[in-house]
Write a protein that binds this DNA or RNA. Structure first.
Lengths: 246, 246
DNA sequence: TATCATTTTTGATCTAGATCAAGGAACTTA
DNA sequence: TAAGTTCCTTGATCTAGATCAAAAATGATA
């Protein structure tokens, strides 16, 4: 009786999980969810807390189910490069050979599902297509990385910020700015990260981020409400700038 | 009789393949090589020829078995970011969702094994651990990407070039500069790519590459014979510079 | 509601690295 | 061996973005 209740509760956990549809979990049928649940643990991480540290042995994967997380690397003197902002459904931990190649810190209060490597091994044994799904996930990340290299290596501050704004305007799981509709209504976005985070993500300083936003404002490309709310007035022009035209 | 000869010849092809031990092929037993061969085609690409073009539908993977390849992205106005230089044993094509996220061009005459996606699907069906091996390969690439983001986003020209020289001094398949012996004898390396390629890899200009090499020469960190031969006189100092100290 | 702390914006100045412009080397071709 | 080509180095100058320094806005605390 008790186990049955638990099992139901546990299935609920996945069934209602906001990450379910986008995450790797979407290759597991509903009726097999208990197996998934058995191999995972729900974890809460408070805003500002790091839960993966670069260089430590990688024994776990995470599926982000609620909140946002920043992934980053540090140089010995404190210079920081943010590799990305993970959101609901994202799979964390692929960028690791024996130890993690990055650190992860919660931007707000966060919920994750933690899987041990051995747990994932058991799951891939049981659900062979999960392994393929993981490869897909890795491929997706690699394509994102390619674009990021171009951004950091070859784009101007203006182009970087435009790219960032466009990225932020895209729905989760759609990481391809080019493949988007050309409709021209303003897009409201909420920046959930600080200017410092934006700067460290784009490889620039907070001052340049601030100034460039100022320029966009003057050019009527955006309006800013408060600090975190931005409206993209001319998404297609921003997209052009992001791609190196404009 | 003929088929038997072919089969032998074909097995030879893999058995003596310089990429065999490092590439994904190393998860296939010798006696199963014919299956691998049946799904692959040997391809030759002449120096300077591109064989993967960013944005085109991704239907194939490649294993590089001889020569070197540059992987890159272009902006519409011609700015170029080289994501990496592939070498013997490297697996190409993971950074693709439906279409390739990068272009690939032979730096010298090159030999590759081409696999169709469907061929790889058949192989992973037959050899389930191959799928895991592909994921590993992707993970390895992702860790390299992390380091590259730091380089492009946060390192100085000096640090970038030091990183590059150290990278080039590492044996193929060892992509972790930190994990290396501290021995201090000079290391001779051969740069197989042009200054332009180096610049586009490091996110700088050829002039800065040239000047920074000049600085390293003056500081007795390196000597240069001709254009392509470089001797690292003080690898550990270069390593320190690469990591952001020095 | 006032005070303090933090974050962001704005301004003034500086500089690493880009750009522009010649020279040199090194490779090709005849 | 000479004459192009192409690639690399070196020098002079410029500039995008960094750094330094306040002011303004936002948010937290009491």
């Amino acid at each position: 009786m008790v186990t049955s209740i638990t099992s139901d509760a546990v299935r609920e956990r996945c069934a209602h999980c906001p990450g379910r549809s986008h995450s790797i979990c979407n290759v597991i049928d509903d009726d097999e969810l208990p197996i998934l649940v058995a191999e995972s643990a729900r974890v809460q991480v408070a805003k500002g807390r790091a839960f993966i540290e670069e260089g430590t042995p990688a024994h776990e994967f995470y599926v982000l189910t609620e909140g946002r997380v920043k992934l980053f690397n540090l140089l010995p003197d404190g210079r920081r490069q943010i590799a990305g902002f993970a959101e609901c459904g994202d799979f964390l931990g692929l960028a690791a050979v024996d130890s993690y190649a990055f650190s992860a810190e919660a931007i707000c209060d966060v919920t994750l599902c933690r899987f041990s490597h051995s747990g994932i091994d058991r799951l891939t044994q049981r659900f062979p297509h999960l392994e393929h799904r993981l490869r897909d996930e890795a491929s997706r990340e690699l394509t994102i990385m390619q674009r990021r290299l171009v951004l950091l290596g070859r784009k101007t501050a203006r182009e970087r910020l435009a790219t960032f704004l466009i990225e932020q305007s895209l729905p989760p799981c759609c990481a391809a700015p080019d493949l988007l509709e050309k409709e021209e209504k303003p897009i409201k976005i909420k920046l959930l990260m600080s200017r410092t985070d934006i700067a460290d993500y784009l490889g620039m300083t907070i001052e340049t981020v601030s100034r460039t936003l100022g320029v966009f404002k003057k050019e009527k490309l955006i309006t800013v409400q408060g600090v975190t709310a931005v409206t993209l007035l001319a998404p297609h022009r921003l997209r052009a700038i992001a791609e190196g035209n404009g």
